Simulated assay, not measured.
Amino acid sequence: MTAPADPRGTWQLPAFGAMPRTADLEPLVTRVLAPNPSGMTLDGTNTYLVGAPGSGAAVLVDPGPDDPAHLEAVEAALAARGARCAAVLVTHHHGDHAEAALPWGARFGAQVMAGSGDVAGPGGRVLTGGDRLQLAGTTVEVVPTPGHCSDHLAFRIESGAVLVGDHVLGRGTSVVTHPEGDVVAYLESLRRVRDLGPAALYCGHGPELTEDPGAVLDYYLAHRAYREGQVLAALQGGATTVDELVASIYAEVPKAVWFAAAQSTRATLDKLRAEGRVEEAADGTVRPA
């Protein structure tokens, strides 16, 4: 099997660690990078301010960690836009995106909106696909993107850009978490975002993708098919456990992130098992059907 080529390999993206703390991406959007870099969060969590220039308001998307330095940077970015926080939107419940949602919503006097009631909190709003939010002088369309996790949402803005959270990353590929993630739903969500014809992808981690967003989405689809083929080949070669599959398939990947690879592998096995292509024994070992 030949691995699909990542189109971003030829793009002029900022080096890891070189993303600016605050950046105006377009008239509607400012990005503020949280100071929480890691092997899983890449450069850190991207927090976005979305609003029409001159509206005096902005929507805060994915506030990220409840970190004083990050809050200070977000408040400075709001001040630079001459804007108050009109609402807090969250793509999904993972802490690196949602931890600050409720405390910052209370600080700004802004309603929290998310795909989960636990994230939206008392007085918050649970969003569903197709909702159109009239906020901060602009329209934000809610796009359902389950797969990375069950409550994942993306937000399409009037410029045609899509804020994709962890559905697509600026570097590498996303994890399909297990057991809450779902590979079939993830693939459907990738196609749904691709069919929107996004002008740009503003990711939850890593740089914005503006050169050819459709090519990145096609690569993500091809990458998942490639990983599935690797799982089947490794099983045919004698691997019987998730640990053995990960050690074989992700041998070139740092072991520090093998736990995440194991989640995606388990999610892939769930898909293959549902399709009748693999079988699981009582002891948890797996074999081709």
Rank of each mutant, 00 (worst) to 15 (best):
E26F: 09
P146R: 02
V257K: 03
P254C: 09
A79T: 13
V253R: 13
L42N: 10
M40T: 14
G105P: 00
S150R: 15
D182S: 11
H94A: 14
T47E: 10
T128Q: 14
V193A: 02
V253A: 11
D62V: 03
H70G: 05
S55F: 07
M40Y: 15
A69R: 13
R277A: 06
P198C: 06
G54Q: 12
V112T: 02
D43M: 07
M40C: 13
G206R: 01
H92N: 07
L232H: 00
L133Q: 09
D62N: 14
S55G: 09
D182E: 11
R192W: 06
D96N: 15
Y48S: 07
D118N: 15
P7F: 03
Q236E: 04
G117W: 11
A262N: 05
G170M: 03
R273K: 12
R194M: 11
L25P: 02
V61I: 15
A18S: 14
T210I: 12
P207T: 03
V253S: 13
R191M: 12
T145D: 03
P14W: 06
A18D: 14
P254S: 12
A80V: 12
D243K: 00
R31W: 10
A79S: 12
E228F: 01
R81A: 06
T91C: 13
L163H: 03
V164H: 01
M19R: 13
R277C: 06
P122V: 10
T41R: 05
D118H: 15
T265F: 00
A154N: 06
A58F: 06
D6V: 03
G137W: 02
G276N: 08
A282Y: 08
V286K: 00
A222K: 03
S38G: 09
T139G: 07
G51Q: 05
P179H: 08
L133M: 12
A86V: 06
L169T: 10
T47Q: 10
F259D: 13
L33T: 04
A260F: 13
G82H: 13
T139P: 04
A120C: 04
H93C: 10
G95M: 11
A57H: 08
E252F: 12
P198Q: 06
V246T: 00
V32E: 04
D43N: 07
P27L: 10
V140I: 15
P14I: 07
G82N: 13
V112D: 01
L49V: 09
L196C: 12
M113F: 05
P122M: 10
E72M: 11
Y220E: 15
G165T: 08
Y202R: 10
A136C: 10
V61R: 05
A199R: 14
R81H: 09
D67A: 08
G197Q: 08
T30H: 06
A18I: 11
H94D: 14
H93D: 12
V119Y: 01
A101E: 04
G206Q: 01
E26Y: 09
G147K: 01
N46D: 10
H92V: 03
A5V: 15
D212M: 03
Y219G: 01
V168L: 12
E208F: 08
S248R: 13
V257S: 08
V90P: 02
A120N: 02
H97W: 12
Q263P: 02
V61L: 15
R224G: 05
L135R: 07
T240K: 01
L135C: 10
Y226Q: 02
R81L: 08
P207C: 05
G214Q: 10
L135Q: 07
M1N: 05
D24Y: 13
G172Y: 04
